[in-house]
Write a protein that binds this DNA or RNA. Structure first.
Lengths: 211, 211
DNA sequence: ACTAAAAAGGGGAAAAATCCCCTTTTTAAG
DNA sequence: CTTAAAAAGGGGATTTTTCCCCTTTTTAGT
């Protein structure tokens, strides 16, 4: 049985080298490439006959960082599974990486066994997420302390419809109201939400998950 | 040491009763209330001197369902921790519950030990999420199999600005372009995204996290 | 060098949105 | 019953958006 292939993209030479050594002690994996940043890695891919199965991707790199690289890989080489490696468990960077196609997220201070576990999970399940990462994700979804704006009855209904491609006339129609009444709702909402136009209203609705 | 209080909101009498029996065997918890739907539960709260710490909330109920009830509780009785209970592990309903303030999500076919574990976690950690739920959450964030629309260079920049309250004239200004060029981008984008107007465009941008 | 696509720009008109000032009807609360 | 707030509706004008048909310049690939 041939080993699974792993590429390392990291500008910290010392860390990358030791990582390479570690992975090569695993029975199931071997490191086939090492690049100092995303640009170099991608350029190399064009000349490679076989792609690595997994890319161990550092986040902070010069020239082309982990996020950009992951986005590119996801669109152009979707078979490569990106496992993000980072110092920090910063919430938004984890979210961004996953949204852009990373299949897993690891922190650099983990135990070697966890790395192996993650690599195996990536091959077998297609993804890996540590408890710490899952918790972060869940936390980010919880509603934030809200300076919540109190929408009265039909305003919410109107807001939802205003977030579609319907014209106000059409909205008035489906709500069985006069266009002038709708016009009133609109003005009230502009004041309440402190927006200048329908676009602002829609952005508010979408961001607050009301639409 | 007094027991932690749990309210059950579920219209399945048989299930709710056995659940009540089960929980009352736990040393740490006791069921203090049972309501057949969210409306009844909320009405009861007004007359109660002490609120339950945890609400075991079924999702599908007549009159007022779990989602609505959770939303209401989160806004008006934030001290009550909602643990959602559901038959299905449907991705979007899990997401919705959590976004609306549920502190945990359980499936009804779980082992009794898990229920106890979840209740304890809710008290001690403030939340509980099973692996299955975490996985679902993570999965929902991954980019979907994309009928991805290829946006060329400045179209993306324009799209972002179009998702603000700026008029096209103002956008033209900050992009150092003629309003007529902007008009061109707009029409191209309408075709590409298959939308009828600026609202549709903004909704697309927001939902695809481009804005 | 040739060519196609992308980028930038325009005229002119109809439709929709926005604004400001104002009235009547319905509902909820004391 | 009275009063206030919310809901519904209107006139009329300005600004913005949308649409359709068209030209020139720049960029990139063979």
């Amino acid at each position: 049985m041939s080993k699974h292939t792993v590429a390392i993209i990291d500008d910290h030479l010392l860390f990358a080298q030791s990582l390479k050594g570690l992975i090569n002690t695993f029975n199931e994996f071997e490191v086939t490439q090492h690049a100092l940043n995303g640009k170099i890695f991608i350029d190399n891919l064009k000349n490679e006959s076989k792609l690595p199965e997994i890319a161990l991707m550092d986040l902070n790199m010069p020239i082309m960082d982990g996020l950009e690289t992951t986005k590119f890989l996801n669109e152009n080489y979707p078979s490569i599974k990106v496992l993000a490696l980072s110092m920090d468990d910063n919430e938004s960077s984890i979210l961004k990486m996953i949204k852009n196609g990373a299949k897993g997220y690891l922190l650099k201070d983990i135990h070697p066994d966890i790395l192996k576990e993650a690599l195996l999970a990536l091959i077998n399940e297609g993804y890996y997420h540590s408890k710490r990462v899952s918790d972060t994700l869940v936390h980010s979804l919880h509603p934030t302390e809200e300076p919540k704006i109190k929408l009265l009855g039909r305003e919410l209904e109107f807001l939802k419809l205003a977030s579609t491609e319907m014209t106000y006339k059409e909205i008035a129609d489906v709500m069985h109201l006069s266009p002038k009444t709708i016009d009133g709702y609109r003005e009230q909402l502009f004041k309440k939400l402190q927006v200048k136009n329908r676009i602002g209203m829609v952005v508010y609705a979408l961001k607050n998950d009301l639409a």
